[in-house]
Simulated scan of single mutants.
Amino acid sequence: MIRFALIGAGRIGQMHAANIVAHDRCSLNWIYDVHAPSSEALGSKTGTKVARDPDEIFDDAAVDAVFVASSTPTHADFIVRSVESGKAVLCEKPIDLDIAKVEECSKKISGAKTLIQIGFNRRFDPGHGQLVEGVRNGEIGDLEQVIISSRDPEPPPKAYYMAAGGMLRDMTIHDFDLARFALGEEVTQVSAFTSNLFDKVAQEIGEIDSAMILMKTASGKLCHINNSRHATYGYDQRLEAHGSLGMLRSENRQPTSVERFNAKGSHWRDACEFFFIERYRQAYLRQLEVFMDTFEQGKASSVSFEDGRRALILANASYRSVETGQAVTVNYENPLE
């Protein structure tokens, strides 16, 4: 039985709490949120102790692992504190919005044997996972191209935009990680284009609502990511891999599998699942199970701190491409240069 403490009692924290409490391989021992009423409400709902200060969590020897689901600016500090207290940590993405802070965090935890897993949940989606497994097994021969489509159902509110750190670091960062996962090798060049096409709130604050990123690996494999902050048909999440012997595609999910046929047309299906918690419900559960497996078996993390670091480096390289209007060579070794 793995004993968790949860830091963060917002929307995503509430989902993680429910998953932990419902699982027979783990327990939820503590909840902490900087907004005390939120942690108290979630503690009451789950029957979990509420910490008034995160020190209570890190000082408790009975806690095996810390699930960090708090606001992004706190992630790096809680990762360091978890490592220093000898507790495994599963942390929501991103590690931080500032690569300098990520590099500082990396130095502080360097050499630690503590399990650190970053919450890039798309890797654990059954469809995406099976596609990547097929690529690795040679089902489509030599991989040549990866295409990722990721479109939100509707734009976020202004307050979210102001805290998110930019679309490429907030939304697209999932796709940068998924691209690395599917390609199986590092991206070396990035060329990015962004626009504000429809969202007046984003336009008001100088944010984007649409993006297309082209990426190339050293061996010549290509990847295309397309993003939008709206899609009238729901949460659009697709992954495609094309190779010398064929293609694999992981498609969207609908609430039901019913298809409709009538005088107006055929093969009509429900709109896609509306948002990320519904669409990636199975992925979040699998993410938790893989973390527990890794912890119990003493294996290396399947989604490491370095994976989180490299996804942010790709986001920053994409912003540089937008600013310069040129393709950018990705510098993983010295990202502050």
Rank of each mutant, 00 (worst) to 15 (best):
K158R: 08
L168G: 04
Y161E: 15
R253F: 09
V201D: 14
S219Y: 03
N252E: 13
T172V: 10
T194E: 14
S150M: 12
N137H: 14
I147D: 14
A202M: 11
L197E: 15
S150A: 10
E139I: 11
K221I: 10
R136W: 05
E186H: 04
A159F: 06
L178F: 03
E185T: 01
E144F: 09
G246C: 11
L143W: 05
N227C: 08
N252V: 11
L168F: 07
S195Y: 03
H224E: 13
K221L: 04
K216P: 00
R151V: 02
S210P: 00
T172A: 07
L197A: 04
E259Q: 12
I148M: 06
Q189W: 05
E259I: 12
A164G: 03
T194V: 15
L197D: 14
V135L: 13
I205P: 09
I213E: 09
G184Y: 08
K216G: 03
F193V: 14
I148K: 10
L178C: 03
Q145M: 15
V135I: 15
A182W: 06
K221R: 14
A192I: 07
G184E: 13
E207C: 07
P255K: 00
L214H: 14
Q237K: 01
S250G: 07
S150T: 05
G141C: 12
I225N: 07
S257L: 15
K158D: 14
L143R: 04
E186C: 02
I140F: 10
G234M: 11
T194D: 03
A218S: 08
E259Y: 06
V187K: 02
P255I: 10
N252W: 05
V258C: 03
G166P: 09
E185R: 07
H174C: 09
S195I: 04
K158S: 11
